[in-house]
Design a protein around this nucleic acid. Structure first.
Length: 563
DNA sequence: GCCGTTTTCGGCCCGACTGTTTTCAGTCG
């Protein structure tokens, strides 16, 4: 709607209202349809008034939006493709359509080659060149990448930048700093007095294949990997406000700037100003303080309700990696892992953990050499022996047991009864209906020995969509059943999502942040899970494996006795 | 189209870079 309204030349603030509303819905971290089903009045959400609320209801009930269909009869929807070309915004697309009746990429290319476009005001040789290049490479919005894939690239670039003496301070900002599981590009903020020198150093990074913009205080490049990187340089006295601005999210920034406006202040990347007088900016904390807020951690800056929470002094103290005492989902070579029990235990000890649970696969998952009942009995003996040989560390006996299609567990009760915990997981029949999949999981959770639901949506980022499942119902059931949900720390999984974690937290359901390690080095993945948990507002007290061993044992036993 | 601790009308985050201009519009983040 917003794109088409812009092209049509409608009131730009009307188009922006649609974008704001869309951003609110996208940023909820929950399915807006679920919220409607639970009776939420959408007009209580920021940026959603009676009109947009009614349109959302219409989409949910009819799968359609009449206003959009009508708009599409007035503005060819193929014009949206033109907006994806860098350098083409609504005004230029509008000019192309109105003056030359250009409706799609093919028409645009023909018109440029025929020399028609250069007749238009504002279309010089450079822009035409740029458009042709973009059409040739079919350049669309770039796919987002796993944060964990970008991380080493980012570290290498930062190390390079620090070689320049002109760089006084440098920090990664953007969605990377907010800890998102996927990032679109890399935003880097540096602090320097001779900024042109830093820009020069940056664009000469050997991995740079293309410079897309270069000025005195900012530059944009593309690396050989295809990653877009933006660099911004400010003076030391503005580092905090620039970091706040460059970290985003966009929606969060807009709300913070509005808050400033309401206090007769102006916030930009150079600082917080009262009239011409700068009252803050050196640190992020000073910026938030000037607005009457405590420092909001980057992971929370998604324009959900963090600003209200900050104002009311009810921001959580977020979980940190060092708060974890153990890991409740670890594999060994007995199934599809690559190391034995003692190797995993020693690796965990090095990370200052006090306990891990050995949870190999069960027999149904043959491809992972899942354990039979007999093999599991044998492993239980192995773990008992291993416990005699480790000091100041405990190995818990567990299993990652398959949840069968009908919701039964893959191993008989008499062997599950011998374990400290039972981690249930779905590894097949991903395409059941949402109701069936949810019922399947709920039934498994009702099993008397069920402790934790592993990777609750089965998603594999960049590879596989989550299976259809009703997370709010599962959270509600976990609360009633007093069992636990896993936040899987594998970089491609990271389910529960941040929004799911928040929901569980709000319901008082404890989350296990597990590595799902298949090798000793894999335990380091816990850092990914902690970051995601922070995005889900989790405090230490919300995390099952942040409990010391005696307390953990009590909670696990209560789960079993509860049946 | 949304919103309100001056407001139900009249505002709406704010600045850098590019290209095409001779002072700025469009785009982008």
């Amino acid at each position: 709607m917003a794109d088409l309204l812009d092209i049509q030349g409608a009131n730009p603030f009307r188009a922006r209202a649609y974008r704001n509303g869309a951003r609110t819905v996208r940023g909820l971290g929950k399915d807006v349809g679920d919220l409607l089903a639970h009776g939420l009045d959408l007009t209580t959400l920021p940026g959603i008034g009676t009109d947009l609320a009614a349109k959302i209801v219409e989409i949910r009930e009819t799968g359609n939006l009449k206003a959009l269909e009508k708009l599409r009869t007035q503005v060819p929807p193929t014009l949206e493709d033109l907006l994806l070309i860098p350098g083409l915004g609504p005004r230029r697309v509008q000019a192309l359509y109105n003056s030359l009746n250009i409706q799609n990429l093919d028409g645009l290319e023909r018109a440029i080659r025929a020399g028609q476009v250069q007749e238009l005001h504002g279309f010089g040789a450079k822009i035409q060149e740029q458009i042709l290049a973009a059409i040739a490479s079919q350049r669309r919005k770039k796919p987002r990448r796993l944060r964990s894939v970008v991380a080493p690239e980012a570290e290498a670039l930062i190390a390079y930048m620090k070689e320049s003496r002109a760089v006084q301070q440098i920090e990664i900002a953007g969605s990377f700093r907010r800890g998102k599981d996927m990032v679109g590009d890399l935003d880097i903020l540096a602090c320097a007095q001779r900024s042109a020198q830093v820009v020069d150093h940056f664009v000469n990074y050997p991995q740079v294949t293309r410079i897309t913009a270069q000025g005195n205080t900012r530059a944009s490049v593309v690396l050989t990997s295809g990653l877009d990187v933006d660099l911004r340089i400010v003076d030391r006295s503005s580092f905090g406000s620039a970091l706040q601005y460059f970290t985003g999210s966009k929606a969060h920034s807009i709300r913070v700037r509005r808050l400033a406006q309401g206090k007769d202040l102006k916030l930009n990347e150079y600082g917080v100003f009262r009239g011409a007088r700068k009252i803050a900016g050196r640190t992020e904390a000073s910026v938030y303080r000037a607005l009457g807020l405590p420092l909001i951690p980057p992971e929370l800056r998604e324009a959900r309700d963090e600003i209200d929470a900050a104002r009311e002094q009810r921001l959580p103290t977020l979980i940190e990696l060092g708060d974890l005492h153990g890991d409740l989902h670890v594999h060994t070579a007995a199934s599809d892992g690559h190391a034995d029990i003692m190797s995993m235990a020693n690796a965990a000890k090095k990370l200052h953990l006090q306990y891990i649970a050995i949870t190999d696969h069960s027999q149904h998952l043959a491809v992972a050499h899942g354990l039979s009942e007999k093999q599991l009995y044998r492993q239980i003996e192995d773990i008992d022996k291993a416990n005699e040989n480790v000091k100041d560390f405990t190995l818990l006996k567990g299993i990652e047991v398959d949840i069968l299609e009908d919701g039964r567990l893959d191993l008989p009760d008499h062997v599950l009864a011998k374990l400290d915990l039972v981690v249930g997981a779905i590894h097949d029949h991903f395409h059941l209906s949402r109701d069936k999949q949810t019922e399947r999981i709920l039934r498994a959770m009702d099993h008397r020995y069920f402790s934790i639901l592993a990777h609750p949506t089965g998603r594999l980022l960049t590879q596989r969509e989550p299976y259809a499942v009703d997370i709010p119902r599962i959270v509600e059931h976990a609360r009633a059943r007093a069992c636990f949900l896993e936040l899987n720390s594998q970089p491609q999984r990271l389910d529960l999502t941040d929004g799911d974690c928040r929901l569980a937290r709000d319901q008082g359901v404890l989350i296990a942040i597990d590595s799902d390690a298949h090798a000793p080095n894999d335990l380091a993945c816990l850092a990914n899970g902690v970051l995601q948990g922070r995005r889900g507002w989790l405090a230490k007290s919300d995390v099952l494996n942040a409990r010391p061993l005696p307390e953990l044992r009590g909670l696990l036993q209560a789960t079993m006795l509860g049946n």
